[in-house]
Amino acid sequence: MRIDFIDPFLDATEEIIREILNIGPKRGEMELKEQESIPDIGVFLGLTGQASGRMLINFDRELASKIIEVMNGEQHTLDSEMGQATIGELGNMITGRAITKLYERGFHFNLTPPSVIVGNNVKISTLGIETLSVPYELEYGKLEINISIKENV
């Protein structure tokens, strides 16, 4: 997968997480996957434009709770509307920044509204489109970004 597409997403994620939680996430080993899964909670965003694709950000339960707490100044459960809206908003922030970075490099993208998925081990089949999965280790838990972008020729 083209790294000039991946690069802005990783940078954006690292920046936003650092801004919210004040800690730098540690990047783990990347791999290409055929099947994605959402262990606890995830936010799903679609991309259209010069290239099409999507991005899925997975959070551990503990990490998601921490982010919800920090962003709202109070605790909400993952099942509450407020909790899910917060995770959705985080997804928007990351992709929004990534798209700005891509725009600076001359790639034009649009975003679809985020969908938040909560559940235990939800499996998502990519139907043969390769997905790059990048795990991050944080003090409060794990975060995983799954990106899948194909250039429209």
Binding site: R2, I3, L32, L132
Partner: peptide, 12 residues
């Protein structure tokens, strides 16, 4: 030129 992340893998 495009830079591409690739590991030997069964599918892609």
């Amino acid at each position: 030129i495009c830079f591409d992340f690739f590991c030997p893998n069964p599918k892609f």
